[in-house]
Design a protein around this nucleic acid. Structure first.
Lengths: 119, 119
DNA sequence: CTCATAATTGAGCAACCGTTCAATTATTAT
DNA sequence: ATAATAATTGAACGGTTGCTCAATTATGAG
């Protein structure tokens, strides 16, 4: 049995071969960071409903607020997060800002999720 | 222009037809709640790495701790969350508990995620 | 039985997150 | 210019969350 490999870990390796194989196959840390950040956007009840609504039709902040029974401010804050992670884009026409999904294949992520919870 | 439809909302409907259509197509609230909870499990750097590692090979708590450079306690806490949401299952053999993905199609969720961040 | 080790557990704490509230910007209409 | 409205913004508050730490359970070895 081998000594611990990282100072932060409090135990010995039990299956050194397994750990080595998985470690070698493991993508770079940045990938997981980005992946977790992507899923964070789907991990909130408000955001996931906004994204789903936009997968139906483009909508403005007011319409989303009415649809979800929330304030424009709350919706706007969430839309900002979604903008910063490039999940939605916007189109200002006069006073009204129309939001839409940044790319169609975001719907695929929904589908996979719904598939999983309906089993 | 129509009056606000829910007391919590602070504005009028701009596109009544859009809101109506989306509202009618919208799945039940419970679906979004479950969906958000599912994605929450992928929305943390530690959990997403655990899930990915388990998609490679079954592993015990110690191995995961060594692989990720974390304490057994931290890993065990996260595995509990993953157990409670039915994403992983475990198999105790003597003192060692082996964890594995609850079902193979969890990998599909990864694929969709990686597809999106690599564009 | 006693000891070592794998794993779990609960309390506590710091960091993060989502909403509210009030103020502000931008645009249109009068 | 003034008023009204769509939207954004930043601070603040309360709730949640992920890790640490110490204690505990469970199993196997000597």
């Amino acid at each position: 049995m081998k000594q611990k490999e990282q100072s932060v870990c409090d135990c010995d390796v039990i299956h050194e071969d397994v750990v080595e194989r998985v470690r070698n196959a493991m993508p770079d840390g940045k990938n997981f960071y980005d992946l977790a950040n992507l899923y964070k956007m789907f991990a909130d009840n408000t955001r996931v409903r906004i994204l789903w609504a936009l997968s139906c039709e483009d909508m403005c902040v007011c319409d989303l607020a009415v649809l979800l029974g929330m304030t424009k401010s709350a919706i706007s804050h969430q839309l900002k997060s979604l903008r910063l992670t490039n999940l939605v884009k916007y189109d200002k026409q006069g006073k009204v800002v129309y939001y839409s999904l940044a790319d169609d294949h975001i719907k695929d992520i929904f589908e996979k999720g719904f598939e999983h919870i309906h089993e």
